Structure formats: C-alpha cells, structure tokens
Amino acid sequence: MQLIRILSQGIRYSRTWPTKPELNAIFPENKVIFLTRKGVHFLPVLSVITALVQFKLLGAEHLGQIIAMMLFLAALPLQGFYWLGIRADNSLPPALINWGNEIREQIIKHGQLQSQPGSLKSYFDLAKLLQQAYQQLDNTVMRRWF
C-alpha cells in the first residue's frame, strides 16, 4: 500500500509541477517528468516489439528471459513516478523556503493570491506555489528570479 501511495503522489506531483525551461537549471524535475511521460507512451510498445523480435530470433527456450526483459522495459516509467513521489514528500532546504516566500509575497503584492498562505514544507508545496505563480504573475516578474 505504501508503494501505491508513493506512485500516486508522484503522478500528482508530475501533473502539478510547472515544466518551464527556466526551471531546468535549478530542479531535475523537468527532466524526470519529461522522460517518464515519454516512457509511459513508448516503452510498453517497445517492450512488446522487443519481445517479439527476441522470440523470433531466440525461440521458446528463452521465454523466461524474454518476459523478464519485457516486464523490465514496461515498468521503467514506474521508477520515474516513484522518484517523483519520494521527491514530493522531501522537505525543502531553507534557501528554497525563503525563495518560495519571496514568490508568495509577489503574488500577494499583485493582489492575486487564490489560496490561503501556508508554510512551504515540501517540494509538492513548492510545485503548487510555482504553478500558481506562473498562472497569475506576468512572465517578466517570474523571470526576475531566474
């Protein structure tokens, strides 16, 4: 049950995190989210094609290895969601907490705070704040921090 909770947290985190190019230099989330999304689309198909080719070339005597390779390729996106789920629950370092508070102050300054101000505790909280900032603030205001 813990694994399912972490995977679902990773999926929610990947949907919440704003995938903006200026965040690439600071956070690895953009790369992990991009590769995980591509893996979800292409790896199941690739695993079936690989299994068919291996079965054609090696025959039925290697069926166990073929199935293991197929399951490995199909399950690779789960590793990305697992990493994202663990990352979403990690607590923020003090520098990122201060940076998030500056962003929250800018949202309040522009009078566009939709949600109640809360404390930034985890990367998931930062993702929600960044998403809100990108939706409500001007791009020139957001680029000030990058």
Results as ranks from 00 to 15, higher is better:
S47C: 06
G39N: 04
A74G: 04
I4K: 12
E61S: 15
F34Y: 13
Q79Y: 12
L84T: 05
D89H: 04
Y13D: 01
F27P: 00
L57C: 07
L35M: 10
G85Q: 02
H41I: 15
K109T: 15
F72R: 05
G10E: 00
R5K: 11
L63F: 13
E102K: 06
L71G: 10
R5G: 07
D89T: 13
I97T: 14
I107M: 02
L73D: 00
P77H: 02
E22C: 14
P77C: 11
L73A: 03
G100R: 01
F55D: 13
R15H: 00
I11N: 00
T50K: 01
I86P: 03
V48F: 10
L84V: 11
L76M: 07
K20H: 06
M70C: 11
L7Q: 01
G64N: 02
R37S: 12
R104M: 05
H41P: 00
P18W: 02
K38A: 12
N98S: 15
A74C: 08
R15Y: 00
I86M: 08
V53Y: 11
E102M: 06
W83K: 05
E61N: 12
N90W: 10
W83N: 03
L52F: 06
N30G: 14
N101M: 12
G85P: 04
R5Y: 07
A68R: 06
D89F: 03
P94G: 02
Q79M: 13
A75I: 07
A51F: 07
I66F: 03
E61T: 15
A75P: 00
L92D: 04
I97G: 06
W83S: 05
